[in-house]
Each structure stands twice: as structure tokens, then as C-alpha cells.
């Protein structure tokens, strides 16, 4: 990631860019620039993505440049083939506004990622909408693919602020009721809540025919538990506190986090939901790449 554009994939760098539209642009450009050294060379907004060549594909669609570099056959897929309505679903819970020592809160990280994805989709002519919820759906923007839609989305995202408690399951049920057509639902949440209820809400969306990508965003401190000695931990949503010997429970906690993520992952895999575990210390390209690969596999 030596290139200038690619540095914006780092959360600590993108934080210095105040305007969200620029953030989205820089993230996507950085991501695209990174792809030049990859099998995705030549990827641009003019076509949606590459996929592996399979028998029956038009030979003229084979990307010979990619073949020359990778010795593999890739076929260019154009936007007409992948026109899919996307919804960016943002969790506004108070816990999303947390970071221990990172540059971005979970929410800011999610917003940056959502903006980048929105930017990417608009440039592929995919209609994109936005839904934000805490205990219920608070904000929504109908999907559209026109260029002005990006401005609307970014403007709304910039206005959003996490606060208070959240009820992810009922909010997702509400979202499920709002979507009339088969869509790609991208959820940005820390998923701290009743796991079974949240999974049931995922299933409902999935059974309604929607594709689901869950960006499970934890703070770096939540993922790695960097504390030492005695600490009094306070839940900023419920104000509940708990006193622990950080050294004593670190291993157990990390095991619990892994278990927590593994449980979501296992259920999501069963329901053919794309589950992307992230934390705020992870560069954006990994999240975007996950998206891209998942989309590619889905195509």
C-alpha cells in the first residue's frame, strides 16, 4: 500500500478527510488502485466485475489482459448483468459510537465503509438506498442509481449519530417489511444484542429473498482486549458496570469473542448470508474485497 491513493484505505488516514464524499471516493480509488497488482487489474466502474470463465461464455468477453498476467480466464461482467438494488442498513446504537483507542468509532468506520460501498454501487449504476435504525427505523432513503443519489446518501450518513439503546431484531423485522423487491441488504452493526433474535431477523430477510451481507463491526479493543490490571468496564448503553482482572480474563474473553463470531458465522453460512467480521483497526480494502469476492461468488 505504498501508493498515495491506497493510504486512504487505512482508517487512521481516512479520518483526516472530513468530507464523507471525499472519504468514499478516496477509499474506492485506493481500493481500485490496489487492484492493479491483483487479478482484478483493469477493473473499473465501466463493468461491474470479473468472474471466472466458464463453458458457454462468449469468448470475446474474456479479459485477455488479466489472462496475460494471471494465466487464468476471466470474463468481464457488465452492469446490465448485475443490476441489483442495494440497501445500506446502519445501526445507530450507542455502542456503535465507541472506540477505545482507534481513530474511528465503530459507527464512523461503518459510515466510511457504507459511503465507499455506496460510491462503488452508484458508479456501477446500481440503485442504492439507506436505512438507519436504533430501536426502530429512524431514517431511510429510497434506492436510486442516479448520480445525485450518492450525494443524498452521503449527506444523510453525515447527519447520522449513534445514541441510546438499540433493538436490532425488531428494527430488522421492520426493514424486512419495508423492502418490496429482492434486494442486497448490507447491515453495518456490532450485533451486540440477543443473538438468537438477531439471527431470526436475518433469516426473515433471507427468506424474503434478499441477499444479505452483514458487516460485523467491533472496536479494536472489543476484538483484542488490550486492557491490563483491574478494570471497571461500563456498558455505555445500559450504564451497567463490571469489575474484572483484565489479565485473568483476557484469554477467556478472546475465546468468547471468537465463539461469538463463530456462532454468527456458522448460522450465516447455513442461511447463505455473507458474514464479514471486522474491527476498527482493519483496513477498508479488506472489507471491500470481502464484498467484491462475495458478490463475485454470488453472480
Amino acid at each position: 500500500m505504498a501508493g498515495t491513493a491506497e493510504k486512504y484505505l487505512k482508517p487512521e488516514v481516512i479520518r483526516q478527510v472530513a468530507r464523507l464524499d471525499l472519504r468514499a471516493k478516496f477509499i474506492v480509488e485506493g481500493f481500485i488502485a490496489g487492484l492493479h497488482a491483483s487479478p482484478f487489474q483493469g477493473f473499473s466502474v465501466e463493468f461491474s466485475e470479473h468472474r471466472k470463465y466458464s463453458s458457454g461464455d462468449n469468448i470475446s468477453d474474456v479479459d485477455w489482459n488479466v489472462f496475460a498476467k494471471t494465466d487464468r480466464f476471466y470474463v468481464k461482467k457488465f452492469q446490465a448483468e448485475t443490476n441489483l438494488t442495494g440497501y445500506l442498513v446502519m445501526d445507530l446504537s450507542g455502542s456503535m459510537g465507541y472506540t477505545y483507542r482507534q481513530e474511528l468509532t465503530k459507527f464512523e468506520y461503518g459510515v466510511s465503509l457504507a459511503a465507499a460501498l455506496g460510491y462503488l454501487m452508484i458508479h456501477q449504476q446500481d440503485p442504492v438506498g439507506l436505512i438507519a435504525f436504533d430501536q426502530k427505523v429512524r431514517q431511510s432513503l429510497a434506492p436510486a442509481s442516479k448520480r445525485s443519489q450518492l450525494g443524498n446518501i452521503l449527506s444523510l450518513l453525515a447527519r447520522l449519530a449513534p445514541s441510546g439503546v438499540t433493538d436490532i431484531p425488531s428494527s430488522l423485522h421492520q426493514v424486512a417489511g419495508m423492502l418490496k423487491h429482492r434486494s442486497l441488504v448490507m447491515i453495518f452493526s456490532d450485533l451486540l444484542g440477543d443473538r438468537d433474535a438477531i439471527l431470526r431477523a436475518f433469516h426473515r430477510l433471507r427468506f424474503a429473498g434478499h441477499d444479505l451481507i452483514v458487516f460485523h463491526i467491533l472496536d479494536e479493543a472489543e476484538a483484542e482486549f488490550p486492557f491490563e490490571g483491574m478494570v471497571r468496564l461500563e456498558d455505555n448503553e445500559t450504564n451497567e458496570t463490571i469489575e474484572v482482572d483484565a489479565d485473568a480474563i483476557k484469554a477467556d474473553y478472546l475465546e468468547e469473542v471468537a465463539r461469538f463470531r463463530a456462532a454468527y458465522k456458522a448460522d450465516c453460512v447455513r442461511a447463505r448470508i455473507d458474514y464479514v467480521p471486522l474491527h476498527t483497526g482493519v483496513a477498508f480494502d479488506k472489507a471491500l474485497m470481502s464484498y467484491l469476492l462475495l458478490r463475485q461468488a454470488r453472480a
Partner: peptide, 20 residues
């Protein structure tokens, strides 16, 4: 002479509680 615990905001308290 217990160490005075450091106050830390930590939303993932749910995970610790479950583990505990």
C-alpha cells in the same frame, strides 16, 4: 490493597458476562 480499577467504557460487556 486492591488496585483501584481503571474505569473503561466497554460496550461488549455482554460477552464478558456470558463468559463469566
Amino acid at each position: 490493597m486492591r488496585q483501584t480499577p481503571k474505569q473503561v467504557i466497554f460496550p461488549a460487556l455482554q460477552l464478558i458476562r456470558e463468559r463469566q
